[in-house]
Amino acid sequence: MKKLTITRPDDWHLHVRTGAILKTVMPHTARQFARAIIMPNLKPPVTTVAQALSYREEILQAVPVGLNFTPLMTLYLTGSTSASEISKAAECEHVQAFKLYPAGATTHSDAGISDIKAAYPLLAALEKHDMPLLIHGEVTDEACDIFDREQVFVDTTLTDISRNFPELRIVVEHVTTAEAVQFVQSAGARIAATITPQHLMFNRNALLAGGIRPHHYCLPIIKREHHRQALVAAATSGHPKFFLGTDSAPHPTSLKEAACGCAGCYSAHAALELYAEVFERADALDKLEGFASFHGADFYRLPRNLDAVTLVKTPWKVPGAYSEHSLSITPLKANEELAWQIQQ
């Protein structure tokens, strides 16, 4: 196959930051996706509808003229979130969900939930208002090996949440393990998952073999090969519970290539092309449209997009960096060749 046309996709997990970074990265997402679920972990975090609407306007200002893109906003769930704010969010057409970060789990998660059971009244309010809960599924116990944190979260915390709130719609963000895939597959229809390109493409050798590769470092961390294979099988299965969520997370190169580098892979520059390579390798290009364009919209109860995007099999080289003024962001697969590209 040399050309593939699919319904324009959406990104159901995206970081675009703010300020100069936002202006640099937003065109990459807007050229290929119609909508994206925007993560709220700014500093300070986006915790109110008013803040979300202000952030939405900043994002829209960064969308290039001529491109049609809709940011779908989320609120950061904290211990001080009120039931009234949840009610207000449920009534706002521009706010789609709340995001739960276990405190300390990842970038800018220090305002997250330290005692999830203490937050159960908030989860009850989300369930009442049918507001989806997006979960970064890792425990933060320092005694737990970093490669086991997702599995432990699934076995303990996530199982308890799903049992106590059976009507709550939950997206297990950026699943990375066979255990998380199995949990989502066996759970009810109200539980789904996003999968990133880096977790589909790489196992942990890509992070550590031959030297530390900081631009492959993300959280949850990349796992063993059998976990990667389980993710590819889920993504390419056509199962409606699994859909595209890049978790594209831009950081200045200087903060990635540092003594204590930031977690996050920047993939928005070539997101759909990266997924296409994975699906082609699995002989499943016919399943890409469902994963990228249908399953997420259906889960969020939003209309599917009506326009299309075309991928052509024409090799191109990813730039070493995307730079603007003094800002430089190193993308995933920098200076490497990709087989597919979006037809402009």
Rank of each mutant, 00 (worst) to 15 (best):
I6E: 00
T7G: 01
T7P: 00
H15Y: 08
V25K: 03
F33A: 10
A34I: 05
A34P: 06
I37L: 15
N41L: 07
L42I: 15
L42V: 07
K43G: 04
K43R: 14
V46G: 01
V49M: 08
S54Q: 14
V63W: 03
G66N: 10
G66F: 09
N68L: 13
N68C: 10
L72A: 05
S82H: 08
A89S: 03
A90C: 06
C92M: 05
Q96S: 06
K99S: 02
A105Y: 01
S109N: 05
I113Q: 02
D115L: 08
I116E: 00
Y120W: 14
A124G: 15
K128S: 10
M131R: 02
I135C: 06
H136W: 12
E138P: 08
D141F: 05
C144D: 09
E150Q: 11
F153C: 10
E167M: 13
V175F: 02
T194M: 09
P197Q: 09
Q198D: 13
N205L: 07
A206Q: 04
A209V: 08
G210Y: 03
I212F: 15
R213P: 00
P214M: 14
H215I: 11
H216Q: 11
Y217T: 03
C218Y: 02
L219Y: 07
I221N: 00
E225C: 07
H226E: 15
H226M: 09
H226R: 13
L231Q: 06
T236N: 05
T253G: 13
T253L: 12
G261D: 10
G261Q: 08
L272V: 10
E273R: 03
L274G: 00
F279V: 13
L285T: 13
K287Q: 15
K287M: 13
E289S: 12
G290R: 02
A292H: 00
G296F: 02
A297M: 07
V309A: 02
T310Q: 11
W316Y: 14
P319C: 03
A321R: 06
S323F: 02
S328W: 00
S328M: 00
S328F: 01
N335M: 04
E337W: 09
E337K: 09
W340M: 05
W340L: 03
Q343A: 10
